[in-house]
Amino acid sequence: MTIVLLVHTVPLWRASLASLLGTGQGIEVRTAERGAIRTALSGGCPDVLLTDLDCPGARDVLDEVKTVTAPHGGTYPLAVLTRSDQPRGLRRAYEAGALGYIDKYRPVDDLSEVMHKLADGGRHIDESLAFSLLQVADMPLSPRELSVLSMAEEGDNVAGIAARLVAASEHGE
Rank of each mutant, 00 (worst) to 15 (best):
T31A: 15
A98V: 03
G26K: 07
R38C: 10
I102K: 00
T69K: 10
L49M: 13
T23S: 11
K117H: 10
D60E: 15
C45Y: 01
L118C: 07
A18Y: 11
L99I: 03
P87T: 09
L81R: 04
I37V: 15
T31C: 13
P46G: 06
D103N: 11
K117I: 01
L118R: 05
R83P: 00
L49D: 02
G43R: 13
L41H: 08
G57M: 08
V61E: 04
I37Q: 06
P56D: 14
L81T: 02
L50Y: 09
G44S: 04
I27D: 02
A93P: 04
T75M: 07
R91Y: 10
L50P: 05
Y105E: 13
L99Q: 09
G100S: 08
C55Q: 09
I102Q: 00
V114E: 05
L118V: 06
K104G: 06
L62C: 08
D54K: 08
L111F: 08
L118G: 02
G74K: 07
D60I: 06
L21N: 04
G121T: 00
P46F: 06
E113G: 13
P87K: 06
C55H: 01
T51D: 04
V61H: 02
D120G: 14
D52L: 01
S84F: 09
T39M: 10
L78Y: 01
K104P: 00
H124D: 02
P107E: 06
S19P: 00
A36C: 13
G121I: 00
A119V: 06
P77D: 05
G73D: 10
L20Q: 10
T31S: 15
V48C: 02
Y76P: 08
P107M: 00
H72W: 12
S42Q: 15
E64Q: 10
A98L: 07
V68C: 08
L111D: 01
L21K: 05
C55T: 15
D47R: 00
V65K: 03
T69H: 02
K117P: 00
L90G: 07
R91D: 09
A36K: 15
Y105G: 11
R83H: 12
L62H: 05
R92K: 11
E127F: 14
V68N: 04
M115K: 05
Y76I: 09
H116G: 01
L99Y: 01
R30N: 03
G74F: 07
A98H: 02
G57R: 05
